[in-house]
């Protein structure tokens, strides 16, 4: 609501702290419902697919042993009983133990989360910086060959399958050029108690190829969004006004245009980050990156249900948090939102 006071005293400032807290709490509360729904769906889905016991037992197992295994995993109970048990345990934070690894499923997923987050964050960084830079260049030279080349490139980036790109990266940069190692995660370093492979040179060398592969689609998307946003903004009145005031082109671009372009971009980037985490599966498989994605693929293959459920719950939670952060960032960047 526009401020109508022509007299003294400012209008209401940005959202007050207790209000923000309330908002966060409400959003987190909604996520609990989401988690519940998700767990039910996954349970049903995995139950319907097939029988994990067949895939687990040794070739020489006898009937009795097969039956015992089934009982040990509670797979001989009716579905509702199994789900009920699961819920009861989940309230204590126990999402069961992996059928395969016999480790607590949640701990297993969380232990792999660090590697996936590293990958997703690196990919996000690459996609955002490269995407915004190239998108701005494309907007400024939209009729020239640079602009057109960048846009054509972005279409390629959107349509090339991750799998193919990954293998190509491996062949080109690891095999032929020998610049980067082909597989795995590098050594981790410790900073403020957080262990991450981003803190060592060896770790950085290992992450370049998988992060670039994962970032490709997002980079292309960011280029296109930035370009179209920037083209629109460049033609807007306030850019003309900024020029009329004699501001340097650099300032106009980096402060006025970029800020305006960033606001809608933030929302997209936030959603994309969630997507990067969830869809790192293919990249992790190709580069043998020890993250959650590889874990879930392996688990789905052998129907390790506790891990599948735990993974999906963690993903849902991550998505909720990311969306929340994006919303808060949005309100921070655009003073027009949330002023009531």
């Amino acid at each position: 609501m526009p401020c109508r006071s022509a007299g003294p005293g400012p209008c209401s400032p940005s959202p007050s702290e207790p209000r923000v807290l309330l908002y966060v709490v409400r959003r987190l509360g909604q996520s609990v419902l989401l988690l519940l729904a998700m767990s039910m769906i996954v349970f049903l889905a995995v139950y319907a697919i097939g029988d994990p016991v067949e895939l687990l037992v040794s070739p020489q197992a006898t009937q009795a042993e097969i039956a015992a295994t089934r009982a040990a995993f509670g797979l001989d109970q009716p579905l509702t009983t199994q789900y009920g048990l699961f819920l009861a345990n989940a309230l204590h934070g126990d999402l069961g133990r992996s059928f395969i690894f016999h480790e607590p499923a949640l701990a297993l997923v969380v232990s792999r989360m660090g590697a996936t987050l590293e990958l997703a964050l690196s990919a996000l960084l690459i996609a955002t910086t490269l995407g915004i830079a190239l998108g701005l260049i494309a907007a400024l030279h939209s009729d020239g060959w640079i602009g057109r080349a960048i846009m054509s490139g972005s279409i390629l980036g959107l349509s090339l399958p991750t799998f193919w790109v990954g293998i190509l990266m491996l062949l080109c940069f690891s095999l032929w050029l020998g610049w980067f190692p082909a597989i795995g995660r590098g050594r981790t370093g410790d900073v403020f108690g957080i262990a991450s492979s981003l803190f060592t040179l060896d770790g950085l060398r290992h992450i370049v190829l998988p992060a670039s592969t994962l970032a490709l689609g997002n980079t292309a998307l960011t280029i296109r969004l930035t370009r179209s946003g920037a083209v629109e903004v460049l033609q807007s009145e306030f850019v003309k006004y900024a020029r009329a005031r004699g501001l340097a082109p650099r300032r106009i671009l980096m402060v006025h245009v970029l800020r305006a372009v960033l606001i809608p971009l933030i929302t997209i980037v936030g959603i994309e980050f969630g997507g990067l985490i969830a869809f790192s599966v293919v990249t992790e498989t190709i580069f043998a990156w020890p993250g959650m994605g590889k874990l879930i693929i392996d688990s789905i293959y052998v129907l390790d249900r506790p891990v599948i459920v735990a993974y999906l719950m963690v993903i849902v939670f991550l998505f909720v948090v990311i969306n929340l952060v994006v919303d808060l960032l949005y309100r921070l960047l655009d003073p027009r939102i949330g002023a009531n």
Binding site: S236, E237, F238, A244, R245, H256, R259, P335
Partner: peptide, 17 residues
């Protein structure tokens, strides 16, 4: 040489103070 535009709502950048 300065210019004043017709509608400052459109010409002032809304996200900067």
């Amino acid at each position: 040489l300065a210019m004043i535009f017709q509608d400052p709502m459109l010409t002032l950048n809304p996200v900067l103070s």
